[in-house]
């Protein structure tokens, strides 16, 4: 496959996932801000989506209106919701022949509709329906890809992009709330803490999953364990990096065993999560652990690019 084609598929996967993740983050932040009446929620979301630097270059304070505008509409924020959808569609158009009709329609319709309705998201009543819609569209795209694509190279690059983006997102979501999660398990959390833990779960659609697995009230170390180490949860870091590792392996095997630094890095990151224990991670510092994972994710993305996409 042409590197240019693989590159477009990889970023198509990343940007569609990113749009969905921004919508998830915004949903939770809006809910939390409503419950706690703290603008701190908006600041946290800016940090989680890596948009804080760009935002504070333009604004002094993190207010609802300005943050919503920045994360949804602002064309200068390349990680924003609408710019992500636009970038996904641009990449899809480059490789239309490599996509299935269902995938193309999912992304093309999303793009057409999003441009039309995104401004409504800034109204009080418009935000929640818009974010639900974006989340549904990103699930639709993912479903179209996994239900209709041949399991060949094109699928692997799209899927790898999705998984790398998703794993990174989960790590960042946890990291912005790491102080609330670093409390002792036996300590009773305040009402605000409790809501924070709930918010983390909610943002990866895992409230029910927590109850099914642990059958107990929310405890910060268990929330962290679920999102970092439990392979049963599809949006946990281990689940995502396992898929990245497996997908890179499949790519290498299909190419006569050709491997590079990206394969080693992915294996290492996967192993770190596979053999990790939550107590050890908490003792060593959750923030330090997550920061390291986020840095490694960046390095992994760069190595995949130089090995497969932009050599």
């Amino acid at each position: 496959m042409l590197s240019r084609t693989a590159d477009s598929l990889f970023w198509l996967g990343r940007y569609t996932e990113r749009a969905g993740n921004v919508a998830r983050g915004l949903t939770v932040a809006a809910r939390m801000a409503g419950l706690t009446h703290r603008d701190e929620e908006w600041r946290s979301l800016l940090v989680a989506t890596g948009a804080d630097e760009g935002y504070f270059a333009k604004h002094d304070e993190a207010t609802r209106e300005a943050v919503l505008h920045h994360l949804i509409l602002d064309p200068d924020n390349s990680s924003g919701l609408l710019p992500s959808i636009e970038a996904a569609r641009r990449n899809a158009r480059q490789v239309r022949a490599a996509l299935t009709v269902d995938m193309w329609e999912a992304i093309n319709d999303t793009w057409n509709e999003a441009r039309r309705i995104a401004p409504d998201a800034l109204t009080v009543d418009g935000l929640a329906p818009f974010l639900d819609w974006v989340k549904a569209r990103s699930l639709l795209f993912y479903g179209a890809a996994s239900d209709t694509m041949l399991r060949d190279e094109a699928w692997r690059f799209t899927h790898m992009g999705t998984m790398l983006e998703r794993g990174d997102n989960t790590a960042r979501l946890l990291d912005v709330r790491h102080t609330m999660l670093a409390k002792q398990p036996e300590a009773e959390g305040s009402a605000v803490d409790y809501m924070q833990w709930q918010a983390v779960l909610r943002s990866v659609s895992a409230q029910r999953a927590y109850q099914w697995l642990y059958h107990t009230r929310l405890q910060p170390n268990l929330v962290a364990e679920l999102l970092i180490l439990r392979p049963e949860l599809p949006r946990s870091m281990i689940a995502c990096y396992r898929r990245v590792d497996q997908t890179l392996d499949a790519l290498a095997n299909a190419a006569g065993g050709r491997r590079g630094e990206c394969h080693r890095l992915a294996g290492e990151l996967h192993a770190k999560l596979k053999f990790g224990r939550i107590e050890t991670i908490m003792d060593g510092g959750l923030h330090e652990f997550l920061t390291e994972c986020i840095d490694r994710n960046v390095a992994l993305g760069e190595c995949i690019a130089s090995f497969y996409l932009t050599h």
């Binding site: 190279e153 690059f157 996409l309 050599h311």
Partner: peptide, 16 residues
């Protein structure tokens, strides 16, 4: 997508 090295034309692919 193409480049020339030592007067030989190559295409950049995921297989090198």
């Amino acid at each position: 997508d193409l480049f020339v090295r030592d007067d030989i034309v190559y295409m950049r692919t995921t297989n090198g």
